[in-house]
């Protein structure tokens, strides 16, 4: 009896209550949306939210993995741009080739990020800030600084395709989040990423190769950036070498609102999904209210500060 009580008390610890808070926040923004505009709950609007925000939704799942490993990846926005340029350039030759080349490119960038990080031991934000510039420059060189036309109509239609009224990309998002959730929860590699982020010294002592885990986390981030780029290309219908700027900030925001911490070892990808939806809905509400789109970055910045700030306060 006593034991049961104690178990319940422990189980309903901090992580449990922060899940509740997250759900409440989610419910609150939904409610605000409904109150602001009757259009909010329309099928069309819901579709718009998903279709418009899916790119950074995909990025957010990869960012969660990186944050759990205790690092950060600022280069994902540039990777999305590179993918769109590669797609637009190569798709006229062969769509399969374009897709394979894009994913290969971003995974390679991810691996390089990881290897450089483990070899040089520099702070990850410095490294990925540098690769952000390098990757962007590659995209600009390939596209010669101009938008690249050449994405087949059939491919660019995918972003607007719906199945049973639900946009195709919603299924993609669900699949990606399921995959990441499963990977993080059930595979040894996934658990090792948590261990390394939580206490790298303890992880090392259990025989985990920390460097290899870090590289793997960046490879996954690269993979997600590639997939996000594939969708982005379809959504914008062309290759944009200067597109997807600051997408990394939104991805980070979603992951942080979802409870991932900069100190590593923490984060649940299903919560990131909620975080992503919260950000997307807040942006949508601002749109519905007729607020200038330029307010959105301000809102994103404030959301980051509030999310991290609230968490720090709760801890102390």
């Amino acid at each position: 009896m006593l034991q049961n009580q104690i178990q319940i008390k422990h189980k309903a610890g901090r992580s449990f209550s922060s899940n509740i808070v997250l759900l409440l926040v989610f419910a609150a923004v939904m409610l605000i949306g409904a109150l602001i505009s009757p259009l909010f709950f329309s099928v069309q609007n819901m579709r718009n939210i998903i279709v418009g925000a899916a790119t950074f939704g995909i990025l957010a799942s990869g960012m969660t993995v990186i944050l759990i490993a205790g690092e950060i990846d600022l280069s994902v926005g540039s990777q999305v741009a590179l993918t769109s340029v590669l797609m637009a350039t190569l798709a006229p030759i062969s769509l399969t080739l374009a897709i394979v080349a894009s994913i290969l490119a971003t995974v390679t960038i991810g691996i390089l990020n990881g290897v450089l990080l483990t070899k040089t031991k520099m702070p990850s934000f410095v490294l990925t800030l540098s690769t952000m510039g390098i990757v962007r420059s590659i995209a600009l060189v390939i596209g010669n600084g101009q938008p690249v036309y050449g994405v087949p109509r059939s491919y660019s239609n995918l972003a607007n395709t719906t199945v049973g009224g639900i946009p195709l990309v919603a299924f993609l998002l669900v699949a990606i989040y399921l995959f990441t959730w499963f990977f993080l929860k059930y595979t040894t590699l996934g658990r090792s990423i948590y261990s390394v982020g939580s206490n790298s010294e303890a992880a090392r002592l259990t025989g985990i190769n920390i460097d290899r885990i870090t590289v793997a986390a960046y490879a996954i981030s690269g993979l997600m950036a590639g997939i996000a780029g594939l969708y982005y290309t379809s959504y914008v219908t062309l290759g944009l070498p200067d597109g997807a700027v600051d997408y990394e900030t939104e991805a980070i925001t979603a992951a942080i609102i979802g409870g991932a911490s900069f100190f590593g070892g923490e984060g649940v990808v299903t919560n990131t999904l909620l975080g992503f939806l919260i950000v997307a809905i807040v942006k949508n509400i601002l749109n519905l209210m007729g607020v200038s789109p330029f307010v959105q970055p301000v809102a994103i910045g404030l959301l980051i500060i509030i999310a991290v700030g609230v968490r720090t306060m709760r801890k102390s």
């Binding site: 950060i72 702070p123 934000f125 600051d246 900030t249 980070i252 900069f262 200038s292 330029f294 307010v295 959105q296 970055p297 301000v298 809102a299 994103i300 910045g301 404030l302 980051i304 500060i305 991290v308 700030g309 720090t312 306060m313």
Partner: peptide, 27 residues
């Protein structure tokens, strides 16, 4: 005060400034 890591705090600040800059004259 809030013990936010510097690169995150200034990344957030960057977003805010960028928004305010474009907001003034609709970019």
């Amino acid at each position: 005060r809030a013990k936010v890591p510097p690169f995150i705090a200034t990344l957030a600040m960057a977003s805010i400034c960028r928004g305010l800059a474009t907001l003034m004259t609709q970019s």
